[in-house]
Amino acid sequence: MSQKPVFLVTGSDLAPQALALLGDYEVVYAGKTPTEEGIVALCKQHDPVAIIVRYSKVGAAAMDAAPSLKVISKHGSGTDTIDKVAAAARGIPVVAAVGANAAAVAEQALALLLACAKSVVGLNERMHAGHWDKATHKSVELEGRTVGVIGLGAIGQRFARMADAMGMRVLGFDPYAKDLPSYITTVDLDTLWREADAISLHCPLTPDNARLISAQTLAACKPGVIIVNTARGGLIDEDALLEAIRSGRVASAGLDSFAIEPMTAPHPFHGEPRIVLSPHIGGVTADAYVKMGVAAAQNALAVLNR
């Protein structure tokens, strides 16, 4: 046991700026690919007062293995990997670095939307293969088109602002959002499915919205809709999306998160020319790494210092 109280980080590193805030604590790392069992073992060994959650899940077993645990702090905004019911039952606050990665994720969503609309990946591959498709290719112009933004927290609002700046009409759905800017028109989901030319997901994953994008909701969408997901993979029924892509009902999809991560190989999405993939790196920039680490440390310390 350490002389200093312990912060357990479910990852292999933390930004130096965040570590500088934790001088009164010993910081223990769970490694690059921690498992739930490994986290439980480290909790038993070190009895941390705080856990900063980067990767893997933190459930009731980990909480019970750390009787000194006072706070669980997410290195990011999405807390679906933390058993919040178990934490609440044990009086352990769960805090998140809301907004720390908003710019990074919103930019990734815009990049995926543009990659889909402009066929960036496919044209790049054709050019490298020696083709010149100017006479046969037409991209989608986003100005004047309608984008539906589901989830209007810090990330969704930032994405909406960029879409508005490109001349897009922005429809938004979020039953909890208040005081929204004038360029977001709030609508119900039925209206959003019916009117959006592109849909971008920015909501947390909950039991109520799992597989929000399904065969049924895709059937209600405009033919040729573009789907972008930089939130959580569980929001999409992946089999239904693949079928809609292959039938042409969905023109293309830009995906940064998946039902199972890391993505299994081979995966049905592999080789699909109208699906653009990235490995859940929307929030992974040098700047966001520092912002999220500092916010996660500050949020945990704020609870410990109450």
Score class of each variant (00 low, 15 high):
180 L>K: 03
170 V>Y: 03
131 H>L: 11
139 S>N: 10
147 V>R: 00
124 N>R: 08
198 A>F: 03
126 R>A: 14
138 K>F: 14
146 T>K: 06
133 D>W: 03
201 L>E: 05
168 M>R: 07
130 G>E: 10
144 G>R: 09
188 D>S: 05
139 S>D: 07
137 H>P: 00
130 G>A: 10
144 G>M: 10
189 L>H: 01
180 L>P: 00
149 V>T: 12
201 L>K: 04
140 V>N: 02
164 D>I: 01
155 I>V: 15
135 A>W: 02
122 G>Y: 05
155 I>D: 02
187 V>H: 03
174 D>I: 15
142 L>G: 03
143 E>G: 12
129 A>T: 10
148 G>T: 05
151 G>P: 04
177 A>M: 05
203 C>E: 02
174 D>N: 11
196 A>K: 04
133 D>L: 12
159 F>I: 09
157 Q>A: 05
198 A>K: 01
164 D>K: 13
183 Y>F: 15
148 G>N: 06
166 M>W: 07
143 E>D: 07
198 A>W: 03
186 T>L: 15
137 H>C: 01
126 R>G: 06
155 I>E: 03
133 D>Y: 02
147 V>P: 00
163 A>R: 06
129 A>G: 14
165 A>C: 14
196 A>T: 08
127 M>K: 08
161 R>L: 10
194 R>S: 10
204 P>V: 07
138 K>A: 15
146 T>G: 05
202 H>W: 07
191 T>H: 06
181 P>E: 04
169 R>F: 01
175 P>Y: 11
149 V>M: 14
